[in-house]
Nucleic acid binder design. Structure first.
Lengths: 352, 352
DNA sequence: AGTTAGCACTCATTACAACAGAGTGCTAAG
DNA sequence: CTTAGCACTCTGTTGTAATGAGTGCTAACT
């Protein structure tokens, strides 16, 4: 390449308009349109030279000799990392978000609402993980006897999220005994995080059982069972999957099926989202970058969300690789901030 | 048609094998295969004559002149109504069902389990409506104060289904007051159906308020709010939708999208299922019979399920019109019976 | 009478060739 | 370094022909 210093301003500018053009039209873009579409006053021939360079660097790629170019994954990556100019949210979208994610409107399923909003406003699929246990506060717990040694545990966390599970105890408890246990747990531990309660309970169990009366020991034992981490671990709420069926680039029936199966198996998706937890702020997986076959034709724009300055979950949008990143990225960013604020027990529910 | 009495035994026999053949192969079936595939020893020519008759009667139809015949909706209808020979369940399927729908294994989401089983074992989509309120028994209720006048209501029904909603009261209650109210409701009304409790509560409100102390009045008022029928009304649990993407006859992307949107809007689906409530036993909608565009390429095999001899809900399977009715129908039938039995509070949870 | 063989006919599918259009890479001139 | 020009490549479309499955009808058969 005796041509020039390869990554000059002009090539990047052209890459940018190429990606923009491809995102909006969905078709390989050739030297002619690029020549007209960019500010640079360059002839198609010059552009072709630049294109050849970009292709050598693996940033664009041609489906066949006589088609235009389309961005490769690296091309998209370069685009979102350094070339992108964000577009501000449309104000109607912003107000929909505020409206839906205000603490006042909480219908007991803030996570679901967030997911649905993401899907609705982007016309792609929305995804939100449940907040992690360390930041989920026990508000109230209740035990109900079922048949035999089975006990139904209901617990309310944060402001109003209700969870329930069934545990098996090693002896049979009466309703009254269970009520007592619940009272004890509530008065002792309410307000702490699930994680913290669990640790405290385990400690009690190890150390000073002799100091406690039988009722307390029972209560502690039941609580320990109740707070054992769920088999399922974390989980997420997905919305608007069907939007994905509208994209022609995901038309392949088999691929779509694979994708939807990945959604319902959850495992790989969770693993992917887990990686996003680590980084604060917006993160993007483009196509194969995710490392999962099911996502090789999709991009995932995520952001962690935080409550009281601690990251507790991840939310994002899933769509075709060819998506309007310049709008989606700020959108996901804002949504994450609003959800975090809405979940914050201090700011969220002022007992006005 | 000077031919003969049109609906003779032989034509029906041929229609039957035609439908069977089409269901298994998915391709228009011609006179030759039909001649070989049926017990009748008839030449293709004769069969063609019969086919012409069946076509005149609207039972079969030819995509074009030189294709075989495929059943019309009426053809399918005739088939399932009078020609079908049921196939018994495979024993492994039966045992999976027993296993999953035994009361012992209840994981607190019997309805969901049933839906998933239907989907898994038929490889189509499973659907189960939630049992209607009249047959849902209040077991325990709990109130928790939220900010302001909002109260979180948690109630446990039947054995272990947990529901929750948020209500707004007309004055602010303390945790203790709410606890008292819940105690009152539990001791007075536990064990009755939601519907019955609601009626009783409304009656109390109208009639003898003066007989009660303030605490009781409050309790009754809160209970009334809590038991107000949900905006959503009934609901259903769908499983295995993605299985539907595997069927080539539903390949049309736009159609699939429409179908999935109908699923997530729920409304039309609910309306359709409602009709199935009325009839006891298995009911079938074939293609356009449902009257909904979204289902015009699908069939729906449903059965109502009953607890203590009263119909409380509907369950079924959704798949392409070309499905193995002879297996699906008995399958849905059995599943409905097992689910009903598992939900029955008398037989389900023997405190052995 | 009902049944069957034979045959002409229709129509979807496939294959193949021809062709237009888009866009490239390269060369040579500006 | 940029650009015009040109040969080349590849896709997509169109038209034509051949194939094959299956029919409807007629006439012969039982």
């Amino acid at each position: 390449m005796a041509h020039t210093q390869l990554l000059n301003e002009r090539s990047l500018q052209l890459l940018k308009t190429l990606v923009e053009r491809y995102i909006s039209d969905g078709q390989p873009v050739g030297s002619r349109v690029l020549s007209k579409g960019s500010e640079l006053k360059l002839s198609p021939a010059t552009i072709r030279n630049v294109m050849a360079d970009l292709e050598d660097m693996g940033l664009v790629h041609s489906p066949h000799t006589s088609a235009g170019r389309i961005p490769t994954v690296s091309g998209y990556r370069m685009f979102v990392d350094t070339l992108l100019t964000y577009k501000p949210l449309e104000s109607k979208d912003l107000s929909r978000l505020h409206e839906g994610l205000s603490a006042k409107e909480d219908n007991g399923d803030m996570i679901g609402t967030a997911s649905r909003l993401l899907a609705e406003l982007t016309q792609m699929a929305g995804i939100v993980t449940l907040p992690k246990r360390e930041q989920v506060y026990l508000r109230h717990i209740e035990f109900l006897p079922l048949s035999n040694t089975r006990v139904l545990v209901i617990f309310v966390t944060n402001e109003q999220e209700v969870h329930n599970k069934i545990i098996r105890t090693d002896k049979k408890f009466s309703a009254a005994e269970l009520q007592q246990s619940a009272n004890f747990i509530n008065s002792t531990y309410a307000g702490r995080s699930l994680q913290a309660v669990r640790e405290a309970v385990l400690k009690e169990l190890k150390e000073d059982q002799q100091r406690m009366n039988q009722g307390m020991v029972d209560a502690i034992k039941i609580a320990q069972l109740a707070l054992e981490p769920n088999g399922k671990k974390e989980d997420y709420v997905l919305a608007g999957e069907t939007n994905l069926m509208g994209f022609s680039e995901l038309s392949n029936r088999d691929y779509l099926k694979k994708l939807f199966e990945a959604f319902s198996q959850k495992q790989s998706v969770l693993h992917l989202l887990d990686q996003c937890m680590k980084a604060e702020g917006v993160q993007i997986f483009i196509g194969e970058e995710s490392g999962y076959q099911a996502f090789e034709q999709c991009s995932l724009v995520t952001s962690s969300y935080s409550v009281s300055d601690e990251v507790v979950g991840v939310l994002g949008v899933i769509g075709p690789t060819r998506m309007a990143y310049e709008k989606i990225i700020p959108f996901v960013d804002i949504t994450a901030k609003l959800l975090g604020a809405a979940l914050n027990p201090k700011t969220a529910s002022p007992s006005s």
